[in-house]
Design a protein around this nucleic acid. Sequence first.
RNA 1: GCCCGGGUGGCGGAAUUGGUAGACGCAGCAGACUCAAAAUCUGCCGUUCGCAAGAAUGUGCUGGUUCGAUUCCAGUCCCGGGCACCA
Length: 970
Amino acid sequence: MEYNFRDIERKWQKQWKDSQAYKVKNDFSKPKYYVLDMFPYPSGAGLHVGHPLGYIASDIFSRYKRLKGFNVLHPMGFDSFGLPAEQYALDTGQHPAVTTKKNIETFKKQLDNIGFCYDWDREVQTSDPNYYKWTQWIFLQLFDSFYNRQTSKAGRIAELTATFELEGNVNHPCPGDVTIKFTAVEWRSFDEKQKMNVLMEYRLAFCGYGEVNWCEALGTVLANDEVVNGVSERGGHPVVKKKLRQWYLRITEYADRLLEGLDRIEFSDAMKEMQTNWIGKSSGAEIDFAIKGVLNTKLRVYTTRPDTIFGADFMVIAPELELVKEIKSEEQTAAVDEYLAYVKSRSERERMAEKKISGVFTGAYAINPFSGREIPIWISEYVLAGYGTGAIMAVPCGDERDHKFARHFNIPITNIIGSYYNGEEANPTKEATLQNSGFLDGMVMKDAMEVAIQALEDNGIGVRKVNYKMRDAAFSRQRYWGEPFPIVWKNGIAYPLDESELPLELPHVDSYKPGPDGEGPLANISEWVNQFAAQIPPTGGGGALETNTMPGYAGSSWYFLRYMDPQNDKAFCDRKVSDYWNQVDLYIGGTEHAVGHLLYSRMWTKVLFDLGYIGFDEPYKKLVNQGMIQGSSRFVYRVSITPSGENRRGQVYVSKSHYERIDEIKNDVQKVAEYLNKYVIGKVTRIDSDSVVNINSIHVDVNLVDGVILDISKFRSKWPEGDDVVHFILEEDNTYICGTEVEKMSKSKFNTVNPDDLVMKYGADTFRMYEMFLGPVEMSKPWDTKGIEGVHRFLKKFWRLFADETKGLIVNDAEASAEELKVLHKTIKKIEEDTERFSFNTAVSGFMIATNELTDLKCHKRSVLEPILILLTPYAPHIAAELWSLLGHSDSILDAAYPKFEAKYVAETSKEYPISINGKLRTTMNIALDAAQPEVEKIVLENEVVQKWLEGKPPKKIIFVKGKMVNVVI
RNA sequence: GCCCGGGUGGCGGAAUUGGUAGACGCAGCAGACUCAAAAUCUGCCGUUCGCAAGAAUGUGCUGGUUCGAUUCCAGUCCCGGGCACCA
């Protein structure tokens, strides 16, 4: 009876499917556990070995929790809206819905191959109208809400208008535009459009004109985190700033709660820090400076260091500010205008890349409110219009950028920190005692901070102020393949669709080309756009649907809730059901979503909590970041001499060591020609004066390479023309050695490995355990198929504990020996502890050790093997189920009782103590564990190795740590 | 530039609280079984010296704390990730 993994796995996958073994019920009587994977985008490329890493880990943990008696929710679905499907549609004309469906089928088949315990009845697809109906519904809730700063919670727009009727907005300053201020009387006098415009500045989902990251090549707007170094993350196309009407989420209102919530969840420190940095909270003050000769305008700056106000030697304002035009002096007008033109000419990309010091004096002066000193006002692009007030007070002795600027333009520097400033570079210390600082003189900076702010507030020239780097999140895309907004525009007012109209389905289109003026493809379908024209309040007639669609993160912001109650058509998720499943207990996914998806879904959860739809305000209790599996690329090197000598005798591929030698002499064409001719006779017959050596390193399919050795015959088969066409220059042992590099796994680099192939060859159980055995889940590592044999051998060896090739099942009912029970309980402890702390690689090694030891003991006893079989179930469910059934069980091993560790079986009476001399291990001795120090000292000193090192002298000291070690100091 | 991680055999990695460094596996070497191969099994396997016993050395590098450091501290180099004119 052999370990026939193919039959076994096919059999059990069918059996589990037929018996609905993975069906999850909302059974409120059982304790729950919710394990979630970040759902994949179903790309056309299918799964590669990198994808399942996290899925396997979560599957193991789910199955483990199930054995422990929990009702486990471990669903899977697809983030199926997105750009690639639409790009593909543009290229091929295939409808995204069609390609997406096909891709999902492939993904599901591949996932099922690996034997995951998903309840596919709970599958969600973000592009399914039954799903995005509720994405649109949640959007409507966001649209109908504002952030009430009094209660620090989302509230309804109706509450807000009720307040406005009574008291205006005095207690609810406008988050979108602080200059909007009105009384109750004024509010009541506003017409509908004015009211709606005001409310738009409060809504959590709002529409506004704003500078957006516009990518011409993609024809769309990108979120900040989709732009990397001035180019699009996808495709690397240039990105420019452009003013467009856009939808946004007012996530900035949640900045503090997003920050505070981090204390209550288990994310890695690195992840928390990324989010903290992204939110970028800083506190300081806004200070108003009078401008010399200008009466009704002040210069408002933001600083985190009000204590340094006496060191402000100049002011810098962002070139974009309107104030510039107002204050520039006549003499400086030409220079300022020239500078503004220069700034405008520079793209975001140049600005980011160059960072050179530039700026111009406006001719205006600000007045230091405490000293009356006149401070020149400059403009420079290093001050950003979008942060703080767009203006700063520059303190060159304390800020490096200000210092460089002052140096560059020869602005005198005031030293307020004494010896802390060396005249060469700025010192951002907070410890210095202030000098040249008026009433702050003699105070330590960090104490002066509070005094300065108080003085500013007392004199009405400044206020305490907290700022965030985080911006409101752009929430619209000029794309087809996304959720349509349930919004109708009429006369510039956005009217929400009634809930009963949801889902607002995407129309079928024939063209995915952008609409006019940067609008999305939907703008081209007037029939669809105008479908609600007759119903729009208050008068009916006119009105057009919003033609933008929602971004990729809309559907993924709440999908974890839908899994709980996926078929509900009355609500996104029944409250009783979400109360039961509650937070995701374990969320597994990559770090790439640190500041995107994870922040947005945290915000949506908080809003839904505030509005009373769910009972918790953090979606994910614990997050484990799986590492990336990188590709291990292989290269071949093609050498040619152009323009002459080329292709006379076909292409020449040289092995690695030859490549290295040729690379050294590549500038000498003659030498390279001789080199090539030495191996390929007549390869190079003529060299011209303009001949050059070309060396191309070309990705070669990793499946044609064994380790680093190229399978030449497979490679050669790409040229059916025959041997004359392609030549190889090999190593001395007649092998072709490839170059290697670790890169992202991708089809274009020919370094992808398909899990299907490995499952076919070794089985799903081997594949699962091997992926875990590679190393800690959190760690990124290049894929290497080599070691999979070892794991496969282990499973075969494990099988042989139960069954013999000729004799069949060899398990007996004899009583287990103490030694065997020790192995069993040691293993129970090891596997349970390692599983709990997600140390799956060491758990796999624990199974190997147990198998090796039981094989050595020739143990085939049911009472030992059965519990180990249960331990193995989460890791290798198929083999476990098969053996369980062979042992005569008719019930399912998926619900067996997890074995209980009993310490008495592993208790030892003595230990092989390491005996060190001066901390260096010299020998070991078996000593009873209950032996006390005097007794141990006596035994140790009698040891001949110890006596040899003592050379007759008494030891200085003997360190004895019970149960650990003995160290003799001489 | 700033902020996080991380550097351990030929390779992936282990060492959970400062206490036997290198578990487990891959690759390699030697052997058994076999006509042969596969499969399986046994032994060896950081480096240097040595027939061996053993000794020296060894967790990026330089120091320190300690009876004892892969683990703690200071400095430094390298690799990976994040942020990047945020006042």
